[in-house]
Amino acid sequence: MRLASLLGADPARSIHWLWPELKEIIWGVPASLVIFFALYKFGGPPAKKAMAARTERIRQQLDGAAAAKAQAETEAVDIRRAAGDIGAERVRLLAEADEQAANLLSEGRARLEAELVELDARADAEMASSSARAGDELRAEISRLANAATDRLLADGALDDAGQQDLIESFIQKVGANA
């Protein structure tokens, strides 16, 4: 019925508000198929290739971005580590500087103490030497003066006859007392 209605209808008009003319369908469908085939046959590979290339480019971009990100993260880690190393180095340098300062201070103090002890000892030795030298000189001078005085006394005949007799009597008494 439907076909009959179609056949009985005006050829200048479509028989259906949706469907085209039959001829058009008959010619149009194969033509469309041919076109589709041709599109598939000749347009598909370049399109597919283009899509693959685009996909590859996007993938490469993604990979590059991932690599850049990884590199950035590595650099960030390095930077953080370097920052940490710098801190540790700073601490180490400060500790080393403190230790060197303490050593210098300790060595300086010890050297000063040793020099003080040495200076004290040298001063004591010089004082003792000066004292001994002065004592020796004094003794020598006293001895010289005493010798000179003794010689002069004897030369002047300090022992008179009474003195001689006293000495002789003293000797006799002393020898006799020692019996």
Partner: peptide, 26 residues
């Protein structure tokens, strides 16, 4: 001797001389 006496008996010497005293003092 200068003064005093020096007596020698055998190996024994008893010296009470001024000379010896002076020498000792020196």
């Amino acid at each position: 001797v200068i003064g005093g006496i020096v007596a020698t008996v055998g190996d024994t010497v008893i010296d009470g001389s001024v000379r010896t005293r002076v020498e000792q003092l020196k």
